[in-house]
């Protein structure tokens, strides 16, 4: 009954940056309720993630872990799908699906859009 965790005790434990429920620093920030259209980059990253999931190459849980592993300043600075593409690349490299060197080689060759 009275064994609830006092908020001041819980707040002493470091919190993961993505775990945002009730976080004081965002309580005074207005919610931007305006529509924001997705662009081609966003849609392509989303589609790639779905395909990787459907083919068993990488799960949504791995995607989330990769996002949660971003440095806090990067997490809050990057747009939603920019976080995703960083997570996808790092997870696929970690799993050996692709190599960092190959990704770098193709990244600068700018194929496609």
């Amino acid at each position: 009954m009275s064994n609830d965790v006092p908020a001041d005790l819980a707040d002493q434990v470091p919190r993961a940056m993505h775990d945002l429920g009730g976080v004081p620093r965002f309580l005074c920030e207005a919610v931007d309720t305006a529509p924001h259209a997705l662009d081609d980059f966003d849609r392509e990253v989303d589609a790639i993630r779905q395909i990787l999931g459907a083919k068993g190459v990488m799960s949504v849980d791995e995607l989330r872990r990769g996002i949660e592993a971003l440095p806090e300043d990067v997490y809050h600075r990057l747009s939603y799908y920019r976080r995703w593409v960083r997570s996808i690349a790092s997870i696929l490299i970690e799993k050996g699906v692709i190599s960092e060197a190959a990704l770098r080689a193709h990244a600068t060759s700018r194929g496609g859009r």
Binding site: P14, D19, R64, R65, E68
Partner: peptide, 26 residues
């Protein structure tokens, strides 16, 4: 029920789906 009062994120890389704010709560 009570949610376990545990903070795996303080012990290294992990991925958990139990929000911080319900830990230890009944």
């Amino acid at each position: 029920v009570r949610v376990r009062l545990d903070w795996p994120e303080t012990r290294g890389p992990c991925h958990i789906r139990t929000p911080y704010y319900v830990r230890g709560q009944e």
